[in-house]
Simulated assay, not measured.
Amino acid sequence: MSASATRVLFDEPGPRGRRRILLLSLLSALAILGVIAVGLYQFGVNGQLAADRWAPFLRPDYIAFLGQGAKGTFLATAVAAVFAFPLALLLALGRLSPFLPLRWVTTAWIEVFRSIPMLLVVYFFLLALPGPPFNVTFPVFWMLVIPMILVSSATTAEVFRAGIRAVDRGQSEAAASIGLTHAQSLRYVVIPQAIRLVLPSLILALVSLLKDSTLGFVVSYNELQYQGKSLVAYTHFLIQTYLIVAFIYVALNFVLTQFAHWLDRRMQRRAASTTGSLVD
């Protein structure tokens, strides 16, 4: 998690805590490398590393097939994020609202969808809604994306709420002193600062959405995981196919995570330069 996200959501660790985190990270890395080494040895013993089992994945039609799945994954993730993040901000504001009924409704939404696994929500849209008494059917794409929106909006709402609470109370008081209403203070002063604080965390929430899109295989949506499943049925190369699919997911998540860290560092430098200008 990025530095600013850590400061917003948790207490920043001290020197001893940082040393403990570093030690645990090194031990975890060694354990992961050990598991990978054992796995590669077993694959080699059983002939899974033979060239003829990997060569088909260099064919243009195989690459295009997996590329179509990656495109479906990106589309589902992007559409879910476009709807989930603004909804999450509204839910956070509702939970902080002094209007009690609104706070109850938004709190119930957040707690329910934070607690339910997304797989169950997908099954509800796939199996329960089309039958009586609802008799509502959604296209395959939306049977995946709507559950992603519902669950992500609930979890991301807590990120926004933490960001809003992290903004210094003096900002709201200063806004009130120049005649801004509570709503105007939120819109022009508090929310922009809160978004800047949690922006790296939103990138990490995007990573979570990307991984949630793998449930598209449940509704037969052509995302990367589903395309991999179809490729296994055609080639019977289960290990090779899923290792390649896993590598693609790792690469995509790594790029998004690095972007979050870069964005956090850039925001810190900008904040430091702004503070220095004010001091001068």
Rank of each mutant, 00 (worst) to 15 (best):
V189D: 12
G216K: 06
F74N: 06
T73E: 13
A157N: 08
W54F: 00
V190D: 07
V198A: 01
R266D: 12
Q225D: 02
L180C: 07
A183D: 08
V167Q: 09
F138V: 09
R270C: 02
L252S: 08
V136P: 12
A92R: 09
A246E: 05
Q225I: 01
G44Y: 11
P132I: 08
F217I: 07
A76D: 08
N253G: 07
Q48N: 04
R165L: 14
D61R: 06
A92C: 11
P13C: 00
R270K: 14
P139L: 01
S213A: 06
A128M: 12
A84K: 05
L23Y: 14
G163F: 03
F83P: 02
S213K: 00
L100C: 06
V250T: 02
L40Y: 09
A29P: 00
R265F: 06
L119F: 08
F254E: 09
P60T: 09
G14E: 02
V82R: 04
A78T: 13
L278E: 14
L23A: 15
D212V: 00
S177C: 04
F254D: 05
G94W: 01
L126E: 10
S201C: 01
K211S: 12
F10D: 05
G228W: 07
G17L: 10
Y41V: 08
R19I: 04
N222Q: 09
A162F: 03
T73F: 02
V255L: 14
V198G: 03
G34H: 09
L23S: 10
A260F: 05
A157P: 03
D212H: 05
I36W: 07
V121R: 14
Q240I: 03
T155P: 03
S28D: 05
D212W: 00
N135L: 06
A251P: 00
A37F: 11
P200L: 04
R114V: 01
A31C: 03
P101C: 01
S4I: 09
A5N: 11
T137K: 15
H182E: 04
A78Y: 03
A174K: 11
Y41H: 13
F85T: 00
I149D: 13
L87P: 09
A272F: 11
A70E: 05
H261S: 10
F247R: 01
S177M: 04
A194T: 06
S152T: 10
V255H: 13
